[in-house]
Amino acid sequence: MTTNKHISEEKLMGYIYRTLSDAERESFDKHLSDCPTCWARLADHELRHRQISGSLETAINEVSPSRKMNFAAIAPRLQRRRAQPQFWRRFSLAAPLAMAVGGLVLAFFGLWQNLGAFFVPQPPSPLGTLPTLACFCFVFVSMDQFDRAFAMRSRFIIMAMLAFMLWLGTLVIGLLNILVIRDLVLTACVSAGYKPAETGVAAILAVLVSAVIYIIVIIGGAEYHYKRIGHPSSWKLFSWTIVMQLFIMVLPYFFNGR
């Protein structure tokens, strides 16, 4: 037995894992040479260390990539490589984020501008350029991500943020779409010579139907995108949703001209 204190567990671990300083190691060896207790403790640890190490190694090394995992599977992604200068590559990370944020600001601003129209039906006038511009921003983001998803996906956190912002965007633009559809139906009824009461019913029906579609698209879309964050299919659905919304958004421009 020795006179000094036994070696701490922490030191013992450090000895096994070779993280001790030379001085610590020396004093360790010294203590070890005349303390059978610590010698046994060390042997015990070393044994378990070897077992854990060996088990882990075999558990991992007995798996091998399947035949599906081959170079041909990633070759098309490599070919999408564009010779981008360093500057553009850094910038291209910030661009979709900036576009998404910008689109959201435009969309919310457009919503705020048109708040009055929710309560007072109007002849189908374009809802201003802001929501349309917002749609263009969102289309850029979703198509850019769709394109990227084949070569190299962005970081998960960035994709999740982008997806959330796009979803929020479709939510806002969708509300404005309902507005546009209601006013279009109203005008159509008026010019077809319906009575005010009939026109009112038609407008309410139009709002109801588009509201149901809206809820299905938004809620269903939320689930779809949530399960496929960053997948090409998710960006594709975003692109389609936004293009459709954009289409509804610009409808009044055509009818206005008549």
Binding site: P65, S66, K68, M69, A73, I74, R77, L78, R81, A151, M152, R153
Partner: peptide, 13 residues
Amino acid sequence: EEAAQDALTYALL
């Protein structure tokens, strides 16, 4: 497999 393919693609790109 998914992570490995992604990592190798990223490295090569």
